[in-house]
Design a protein around this nucleic acid. Structure first.
Lengths: 202, 202
DNA sequence: TACAGGAAACGACACGTTCCGTATTGACAG
DNA sequence: CTGTCAATACGGAACGTGTCGTTTCCTGTA
């Protein structure tokens, strides 16, 4: 497990992994309880049993803490399945995502608030896209390209457009307060529609 | 021009329409210059040449001011055309929306920040949905239902699903920092895809 | 001995509210 | 038609509160 955050291997007191975990956990716990907005760095520090200075030493802002916490949580949760059946894989992945957003409020409320925060913090927006979204979008793109090459999709279907059509409705409902998130039935209908539309215009 | 905001016809000094306009204009101007986040009620008051108290007398928060300002601006801008040609109407409407979001930063930056703000202000979220989004979604729904009844769409196509597939990608790119908004070409491709998928699953 | 970490305090700033004085209106009386 | 009055909007300034990000001083640890 190579640590890409290694602090240049200085020969002195190392960073406390216990404090790091406590901070990340506390940030998601507080988001679940109060929502992202009202959570303060001071509250995170207090909950984690840690000094404010320790947080500001390693993260530039509350958003950066929550981003790292979400990345930790999401890593195992949102893997992209590959059973050979594209439709089933898409439905399964999206079901997992929606379930994560709904059931575990540690995830949903924190993500929504974090996205809100990125609207006036360009550096945080960079981190959200590069660390959280881009890798997972790449996974989906690869899965769709593979399906296309295997003949399960029109030969010049556009994976990027398909990804937008699939996932945008989720965030549309989530961020624009359009009712509750999709039910499992609605997800299947959504995937069916998108797969049926992946032929390019005449 | 019946005034539905008439304050119960009390016999005393009426609300200053000049101040109201100055406040709404100032709020959008400041959003265009600094983005929504950094704008403060104090700054709006200063720019409008108005006392803070006057703002708090009529609006509960910065968000409520910007919401009303956006509603004023959007009313003439986002009308739904009805030429009989559904595809052309959809493209035209979405082109207008995208152009408004891109060109006039008074609109785009204010809307993005306002949406962000609604993530931790339920009352503001209510206002955003009820005042800004719902009426326009209803317009789109009517237009789609009419097209369906005219035989331009599959008989049991779902207008709500179509609306989600059409507009969600816009807000997806806007709020999740996925590149720039759609080009006019991309809008046409998007509309074509959605119209092709509006048949229900077998 | 160099750095991580805890505790506490700081100045800056925006919040939402309050007080006070002034300006503007409709209602009513003559 | 005109003068007076009560009610309200408005501007200006100040307030207490809370969070921000930083700083200071100290202890703990490899």
């Amino acid at each position: 497990m190579p640590d890409q955050n290694a602090p240049a291997r200085t020969p002195h007191r190392p960073r406390s992994e216990a404090s790091r975990r406590a901070i990340l956990d506390a940030s998601l716990d507080l988001c679940a309880e109060q929502g992202y907005g009202p959570v303060t760095v001071e509250a995170i520090a207090a909950r984690a049993g840690v000094s404010k200075k320790t947080i500001y030493r390693w993260w530039p802002s509350k958003g950066a803490v929550v981003l790292e916490a979400l990345d930790d949580v999401a890593n195992p949760a949102a893997d992209f399945p590959d059973s050979g059946d594209l439709r089933a894989d898409l439905v399964a992945q999206m079901e997992g995502l929606v379930r994560g957003l709904l059931s575990d409020q540690r995830f949903g409320r924190a993500l929504v608030g974090l996205i809100a925060d990125t609207q006036h913090d360009p550096r945080l927006a960079r981190g959200l896209v590069d660390d959280l979204f881009h890798p997972r979008i790449e996974d989906a793109r690869r899965r769709l390209a593979k399906a296309r090459d295997a003949g399960q999709l029109h030969q010049d279907a556009d994976p990027d457009l398909a990804i937008e059509l699939l996932y945008a409705p989720l965030y549309y409902r989530l961020l624009l307060h359009q009712g509750s998130l999709h039910s499992m039935d609605e997800l299947r209908v959504l995937v069916d529609h998108v797969l049926r539309s992946t032929a390019p215009p005449a």
